[in-house]
Computed example of a mutant assay.
Amino acid sequence: MLDNEKTAWQMMSSWTKKLVGFIERLYKDQFTIHSRPSDFSFCITGSGARGEACPQSDLDAFIVIPKITQNQRETWRKINLAVQKRLDNINDSRIKTLRPGKGFVFCTGGLNPLGMVTKKWMERNNKDGLIKKDRVIFDLTNTAAALTGLLEEYYQYPSDPKRYLRKHIVSGLQECAHAFGNPKLHRELVDEVKFVLGKQAIEFGSNSLLTRKRKQGLQAMEVAINDKNFQPPAPYSDIKRVKREFYRAPQFILKGLAWFYDIDEVSSLAQLSKLEEMGKLHPTRAVHFRKAMSEALRVRVASHIVTRAEFDKVLSAYVTPNRDQSAWLRLNPEQSELLEDAANSVRLIIGWADEFTTSQGRAHGIRYNPFSEPFLIK
């Protein structure tokens, strides 16, 4: 592992553990007031599950519980509301930054134990009036059966008008990690999710034999290939968007490969190691994932510290900041050169993913994995 990669991932992993530990203490405080209503597994998704949370990252989370009574369900709601309120109070008291409202807060778009969106989110996304006044999209302190039922419903009814509201939640259910509580409940959920995703998928290209999970793996990779926001910037551009233009494409492609090859790991670093171990990713190609992601993550951490916000725009070394950019991170010459090199690796990775999805989507002929072959510099 490269030193800068080790430092960036270690910093984020350490912060994730501290954040989760703090959340656990808040719940323990509430259990002394209400008594713990039932057994549970507090699960985290997104950057928290990947061990890549920064001080300004919010927390995507939900709670798996066994079958319980309505009274117990109401108690869980009181506990979740109390914890969320304490987090909101901490967040409101923080110094205003470039992007206030991040850090020490649950996801504002419904991927939280209450399944509730904020008023601002509702005003922005509820044009069709599909969300009720309580602002709950789906109760995410729930049984494994109910949570995976939402997953099944999402895929079974693609024309459901509420589907777009649940996309973020569904994504979180599919890649989550146990944080605290009873890990057995998390494992039961993962098994149920794998069963749902293991069903035969709708036709992908001209290949109808893919499971949902494999299909989603290819789709995740296609997003990285085709989304203009995920393409690396033009050489020596003034402004670089570290998360979107450097980190996202390798992350989505690793996730896609992990889903395609039925790997349970959630963190990008663990997925990369597992793919290498299985022979699905050759070391000569893995080095480009490490280069692209580790440099982007190192700069991302630095940007968050400098701006005190979840702010990923940075200035190249030769740029003189204007008044609006005075709080941004300005790269030094070495960082600028390293990011330029990382951008070249991102371009290679996107090209390999394009080869992979084209090959795997064929109805006939040999399907191969270019990632598993040595990369020879021509």
Rank of each mutant, 00 (worst) to 15 (best):
K274I: 14
L376E: 15
E310Q: 13
K132A: 15
A82H: 10
T357V: 11
A49H: 08
S47Q: 04
V266Q: 15
F62W: 05
D227P: 03
D312S: 00
E337G: 13
F371W: 04
H178A: 07
L297E: 10
L272S: 15
I68E: 02
E24W: 03
V223K: 07
S372F: 07
R323E: 14
R298A: 04
G101I: 00
A270R: 05
E24G: 08
S159Y: 10
M293Y: 04
K243C: 01
T307Q: 07
E24R: 11
T358A: 11
S372G: 12
S303H: 09
Q30R: 06
K28G: 09
S345I: 02
E152Q: 00
V64K: 02
G256D: 06
K199I: 02
F40Y: 08
Y236F: 15
L19W: 02
K96I: 07
D3E: 10
R25M: 12
R187G: 03
A296H: 03
F371G: 05
Y261K: 04
V346L: 12
W352M: 14
D312K: 01
E334R: 06
V117I: 13
L114A: 10
G103M: 02
I137W: 08
G48M: 13
F371C: 02
P250R: 08
V287Q: 15
N91P: 00
A201Q: 06
I349C: 02
L275P: 05
N126I: 08
K17V: 01
A342C: 08
R298L: 08
E123P: 02
P55T: 15
G217S: 10
R166W: 08
F104C: 03
I202V: 12
C43Y: 01
A53S: 15
D324P: 00
A201T: 01
L140E: 03
T357P: 01
V301W: 06
A146H: 07
L297G: 03
G129R: 05
D60F: 04
F204L: 13
A145P: 00
N207S: 03
E337A: 14
G109Y: 11
R86C: 13
N89Y: 14
V196R: 11
F375N: 09
I68S: 05
Q231M: 13
L339M: 05
Q325R: 05
K67T: 14
L98E: 06
G217L: 11
Y164E: 12
T118N: 04
E153G: 03
H178C: 11
K162N: 01
V64I: 08
T358M: 11
V301Y: 12
P333L: 10
G101W: 03
I131R: 06
L338N: 09
P158Q: 02
V287H: 10
P333S: 09
D312I: 00
Y368G: 12
R77P: 04
L147Y: 01
G51L: 06
F138Y: 13
S345V: 02
S14C: 11
R248I: 07
L147N: 03
H186S: 05
A292E: 11
C43K: 05
T97R: 06
L26V: 05
Q84R: 12
T45H: 05
R308W: 15
K96V: 07
N322Y: 12
